[in-house]
Structures are given as structure tokens and as C-alpha cells.
Write a protein that binds this DNA or RNA. Sequence first.
DNA 1: ATTTGAGTAATGATCGATCATTGCGTAAGT
DNA 2: ACTTACGCAATGATCGATCATTACTCAAAT
Lengths: 220, 220
Amino acid sequence: MTEPEPLPPLSRGPLREQIRRVLLDGLVAGRWQPGERIVERRVAAELDVSQAPVREALRELEALRLVESAPNKGARVRDFDVRDLRESYQVRAVLEGLAADLAVPVFAGDVRVLEEHTRRLHQAAAAGDVTAQIRHAVAFHRAIVAASDNRLLLAVWESLGVEVWTTLSLRVYRAELHENAEDHEPIVAAFRRQDPRTGEIVRDHVLSYGLPPAPAPDQA
Amino acid sequence: MTEPEPLPPLSRGPLREQIRRVLLDGLVAGRWQPGERIVERRVAAELDVSQAPVREALRELEALRLVESAPNKGARVRDFDVRDLRESYQVRAVLEGLAADLAVPVFAGDVRVLEEHTRRLHQAAAAGDVTAQIRHAVAFHRAIVAASDNRLLLAVWESLGVEVWTTLSLRVYRAELHENAEDHEPIVAAFRRQDPRTGEIVRDHVLSYGLPPAPAPDQA
DNA sequence: ATTTGAGTAATGATCGATCATTGCGTAAGT
DNA sequence: ACTTACGCAATGATCGATCATTACTCAAAT
């Protein structure tokens, strides 16, 4: 088995997953506006599939809180607001704070993985690739959660849909991109020296994302 | 509209919800054992419904991590272990800790709701009704999370399925029932005096649930 | 003009049937 | 005996059609 890529699988995975991706892309691209309905049959016809897998895909989007639905009412795109972002960062902060505390002994000072993510984040920033910046910043945070060795914690964190929400927050109301590489250095350093306050540091780092655009620091 | 109860609705709500309840009850009652498969068609035939709503109900159980499934493999009852409980309490601890901090100014010292839950918990304990104990203890914790006024936090907490998991943990391996009423008094008191350490107190309280049976306290 | 209610189109919820994958038993081949 | 390939039953995934609820139109009644 030395073949690197057998062939680009024309249709990989269950249908519902492909549909979910299409819907996700559509939401991120703004094809459906907030408040707009997503009609199961219309999507099904458009993708030339039946209603069933579309339903299932919509359920997954509902779990990500990207759409909301009531019985016999169907799904509609959620109308995001700043409150959603604040709530998200509050929850992320405590989750990732816990993850960091749990991850410190797991990393055991070996932070090469985190350094690699930071490096790519730097590269993306230098190239001005916002999408890649988000992707690598999220990967950085995810690596911490994954290292916590708490499966539930990882599952809950994934259910927040951090990458999609971050992307959307940039699109919907042109929020600032907080994820700059420098901010992650202190975190890497904390893990490197196995600082008992690493959780606290990570928590405050995430929490700072949800804060107003950063007050002018030129006043003592 | 003064009629108190028009009629006990013979079949309320969407089918999938009724089915979900049946499956939940079955799991809690031990009708399906850990590791056992739950076959969509068999359940459908047994309840005289079609496969579709059963599928949807199973998806919800999967979200509660009560069953696990892989594509084309179907669902099977998860094989819970102590690790699951430990993970659950760790996550609950930070979530409810955050909720408590957010809820302090919301309660503003008015803890009548929490007192009521505590009172009922006492009653249930006195009556030896374990199920009611769990129900009221969970309601107590849920009240704190609900008071946090963070919708995402509440949604994430609900997704943990605390009540079902607590009940199951008693059934599967006869875990101890930690939820005794006295333990909740310090929490109520902290909210009453709006203690800035309330979050910390709640966090430690929840975390203590996941600890071993409590070491003998007779040694200084 | 406003309200009420029948009628209807749109669409979610559910159904019964079919397609496709998996698991497993069985037998030929070594 | 062990391995491999074939065939079949079980079952998840998907489909096309039907049922049931909702949202809406519009006209008659007030």
C-alpha cells in the first residue's frame, strides 16, 4: 500500500455528510441569510436527493445552533447577534481552561505540536490568508482540548462549532479577527514550563476574544 | 379557558419524541444492556411505527452519548465506565462554576427558588424516594445554570443529560447517591450572601461527586 | 373596515419499499 | 486445518409517496 492517493473519492461518505457540508458552505458563504427558511424539499430537489438525508443534515446544523426549528415549522437560519459570541467565548473559556489544566501533565513540557500550529498561524498571517488564520488558530485551541484526554470535554467543545462560528462572526457583522499569532506565545510558554496557572492563562486568553475591540492602551 | 386539564393527551407531540422517551425509559430500566445493539427496524415494528422516527430518536440518544454508532453499523448501547463519570463531573464542574458566577447577580440574594428545590430534595430523601432525590437535585443544579442567562451554557449543560446519566450510574454499577440535601445548603448560603466565591464553591461541590467514596475523615 | 371561517397550497412528519453495505456461514483451494 | 472467495441474510441508508399541520387567501358576516 504505497499509493499515496488511490483516487479523489468522487462521492465519499454518507450522503447526509456531503449534504451537511453543502449546507455549511452555503451558510458560511451567505447563500442563506439569517432568518431565512431552509426548506427540506427545495434543498433535496436542488441536490437531487431525497428529503431524508437533508433532514438529518439539518438536525446536525441545529445541534451547532446554526439553524433553529420548531415542530412542523421547519428550519430557519439563526439570527446571530453579539450576545451569541459573548456566550460562546464564556463557555469556551472555562472549557479550554479545564482542558489546559488537564493537558499540562499530558504535554509534559513537550510543546512541539503547539509550536507547529503557531508557526502555521504566523505563516497564514504573513500571507494575509484570513481563512487559514482561523483554521490554524482553531487547530491550536483544539489541540489543547484534545490533549486533555477527556473525551466528553472534546465532544462538547467540538459541538460548539468554533471554526464555523468564528468565520461567520467575521462575515455577518465584520467582527475583528482576534486570532493573531503573538497572543498564543504566552500559552505555549506556559505549557512548556508546565505552569500550574496554565488553565487560568488560557481561560483569560479565550475570554479576551469576547471583549470589546480592546481599549486604547495609551492611558496609564 | 378555565378547564384545568382538557384531557390527558393520548398521543402528544411528535412521534420521534414519544419514541425517544420509550428508548430512554428502556435504557434506564436496563431493557437494553450496554454493548447491545438497538436495531431500528425491530424497535419500529415493536412500536408499530416506521423506521424514520426511530432513527431520529436514536440520533438524539447518540447526542446524549447513551448510544454510539458508526456509518452502516447502527446504534449500540454505550458501555459506560467510571471514566465517563469522572469526565462528566469535570465538565459539569466548570460549566456550573461559570453558571454560578453569572447567576449571583441575577439571583441578587433572592434564593427562594433554590430553597424550594432543596426543600423538596429533603422531602424525597426523607421518603426514601431515590428517583425523586435525583430529580430534585438535578433541578437544583439546572436552576443555577438557567439563571446564568447564558443560553449556550444552558444548552450545553442540558446536552450532558445529567439526570439520565446519574440514574444510570446508580443502575449500571451501583454508584453511591451523592446528592444529599445538606451538601446544597452551603451553595444556597453563598448565593444568598452573593459571595464572590460562589462559582468556586459550586465547582468544588460538583467535582466532589466524581471523587472516590469519600475517605475516612477521622484522621487529622 | 374588521373579524371569522372555509378552502387551499406549501411543507414538515411519517410511511412503506428499495438500494447498498456489512457480517457471517460455507465450501473450494492450498 | 487454514485461507480465501462466494452467497445470503440482516440491516442501515436512501428513496418516492402519503399524511398532517401550518400559513395564507378571500369572501361572507357583523
